[in-house]
Simulated assay, not measured.
Amino acid sequence: MGRVTAGVTDRRRPSRSVAARVGFVSTDGYILAFRRHFGQTPGAYVRSSLDRSA
Rank of each mutant, 00 (worst) to 15 (best):
residue 1 M to W: 11
residue 2 G to T: 12
residue 2 G to H: 11
residue 3 R to G: 13
residue 4 V to S: 07
residue 4 V to E: 06
residue 4 V to R: 04
residue 5 T to W: 07
residue 5 T to K: 11
residue 6 A to W: 05
residue 6 A to M: 12
residue 6 A to R: 12
residue 7 G to A: 07
residue 7 G to H: 08
residue 7 G to L: 14
residue 8 V to F: 00
residue 8 V to C: 07
residue 9 T to E: 11
residue 9 T to R: 15
residue 10 D to C: 03
residue 11 R to E: 15
residue 11 R to Q: 13
residue 12 R to D: 09
residue 12 R to L: 07
residue 12 R to V: 06
residue 12 R to I: 02
residue 13 R to F: 09
residue 13 R to L: 15
residue 14 P to E: 03
residue 14 P to T: 03
residue 14 P to A: 03
residue 15 S to Q: 14
residue 15 S to G: 02
residue 15 S to V: 10
residue 15 S to C: 09
residue 16 R to H: 03
residue 17 S to F: 07
residue 17 S to C: 08
residue 17 S to D: 13
residue 17 S to I: 08
residue 17 S to G: 09
residue 18 V to M: 04
residue 18 V to P: 02
residue 19 A to Y: 04
residue 19 A to V: 06
residue 20 A to P: 04
residue 20 A to Y: 08
residue 22 V to A: 01
residue 22 V to N: 01
residue 22 V to K: 00
residue 22 V to E: 00
residue 23 G to E: 04
residue 23 G to Y: 02
residue 23 G to M: 07
residue 23 G to I: 09
residue 23 G to K: 07
residue 23 G to Q: 02
residue 24 F to T: 03
residue 25 V to I: 07
residue 26 S to K: 14
residue 26 S to H: 13
residue 26 S to G: 06
residue 26 S to I: 02
residue 27 T to N: 10
residue 27 T to H: 07
residue 28 D to N: 13
residue 28 D to G: 15
residue 29 G to E: 04
residue 29 G to D: 08
residue 30 Y to L: 09
residue 31 I to W: 01
residue 31 I to C: 11
residue 31 I to V: 15
residue 32 L to G: 14
residue 32 L to I: 13
residue 32 L to P: 06
residue 33 A to S: 15
residue 33 A to P: 03
residue 34 F to Q: 00
residue 34 F to M: 04
residue 34 F to A: 03
residue 34 F to I: 00
residue 34 F to S: 00
residue 35 R to N: 08
residue 35 R to Y: 05
residue 35 R to M: 07
residue 37 H to M: 14
residue 37 H to S: 11
residue 37 H to R: 15
residue 37 H to Y: 10
residue 37 H to P: 04
residue 38 F to N: 01
residue 38 F to A: 05
residue 39 G to F: 00
residue 39 G to K: 06
residue 39 G to Q: 01
residue 40 Q to G: 04
residue 40 Q to L: 15
residue 41 T to D: 04
residue 42 P to M: 05
residue 42 P to D: 07
residue 42 P to C: 05
residue 42 P to G: 06
residue 43 G to Q: 14
residue 44 A to D: 12
residue 44 A to M: 09
residue 44 A to N: 11
residue 45 Y to F: 15
residue 45 Y to P: 00
residue 45 Y to E: 01
residue 45 Y to W: 13
residue 47 R to K: 13
residue 48 S to P: 04
residue 49 S to K: 15
residue 49 S to H: 10
residue 49 S to Q: 15
residue 49 S to R: 13
residue 50 L to C: 09
residue 50 L to M: 10
residue 50 L to V: 12
residue 51 D to Y: 12
residue 51 D to C: 09
residue 51 D to F: 08
residue 52 R to H: 09
residue 52 R to G: 04
residue 53 S to W: 06
residue 53 S to C: 09
residue 53 S to P: 03
